[in-house]
Design a binder for these strands. Structure first.
Lengths: 144, 144
DNA sequence: TAGATGTAGTTGTAGAGTACAACGTAAGCG
DNA sequence: CGCTTACGTTGTACTCTACAACTACATCTA
């Protein structure tokens, strides 16, 4: 068993390497929907609609960034805005039929890529890895 | 124990979430050295010098991107170029004294942040998590 | 109810990161 | 020598992003 410091060092290096590559990989795999757009659209789908402000808070993005991303998704016909009748400042965002369809395609293809990468892992390892990642990200959210 | 598919789904989501945040976090923590610059400089330090082409291949970056990144690092005085006496096309890149110093600072601070995030993990979990990440990244490199 | 304060979202601007294409220069090889 | 290949730079364009200024609406308070 390696010393605690060595493990932390490895985790740091590997997480960094992964992050460095994620965007390029995503762009190569899905030119029609960038990593950011995908994530935002997936969140809308998952939450059955939410506000731009919620997206910004959840992904640590500036509201202007979200505003432009949403505008782009709307232009592509992937997202629609419904003004909240109780508060006219608020726009509740939803994936359109078309947006949901594209999202489903990209999700399926991403899922397949992950399945390929993890094909030779046994269930115990998969389960543990998933748990560790969730735990790590939760800690990061908590600590900034 | 969850089904294989659920674990894969979680791994996908968490890895994506992590990637989405890594750049912004790095920028917040180290305005003086972006995630990309840091990674390149660290690779130079690790390899005790290498060529721009090697960096491009290793990080799946276009050679023009590397060229500009290195130019920026040179302007900051963090990297120096040594023309290979045997092949005048080649520039072997090295961190300068100053570059190595900054790198050491950022590395130390990153290491501390990771230690904080992982403070309440026991050694067995750390070791397993490190192993899983290494295995995952190796698979990704192999499969593209 | 009028004015202050707060919240949601957009737009102007600027900068980083990136890719692709075109180019210059230097080897390497027939 | 001239063809091809390898290394690197530069021009150009696009995406993502933040910050600041702004509009519009809502809510609170005196």
């Amino acid at each position: 068993m390696p010393h605690r410091d060595d493990s932390v060092e490895t985790i740091q290096q590997e997480m960094t390497a992964f992050a460095r590559r994620a965007r390029a990989t995503a762009a190569r795999m899905h030119p029609e929907l960038s990593l950011v757009s995908y994530t935002l659209l997936a969140h809308l789908d998952d939450q059955r609609g939410c506000r731009a402000t919620d997206l910004a808070a959840h992904y640590f993005l500036d509201k202007s960034t979200v505003s432009r991303q949403i505008a782009a998704l709307e232009k592509l016909g992937f997202v629609e805005r419904r003004v909240d009748p109780d508060d006219h400042r608020v726009q509740v965002l939803h994936p359109t039929e078309k947006g949901a369809q594209v999202l489903a395609n990209v999700t399926a293809s991403r899922r397949q890529a992950f399945h390929e990468r993890l094909a030779d892992w046994d269930e115990t390892d998969l389960d543990r890895f998933a748990t560790y990642l969730r735990r790590y990200n939760a800690a990061q959210e908590r600590l900034g």
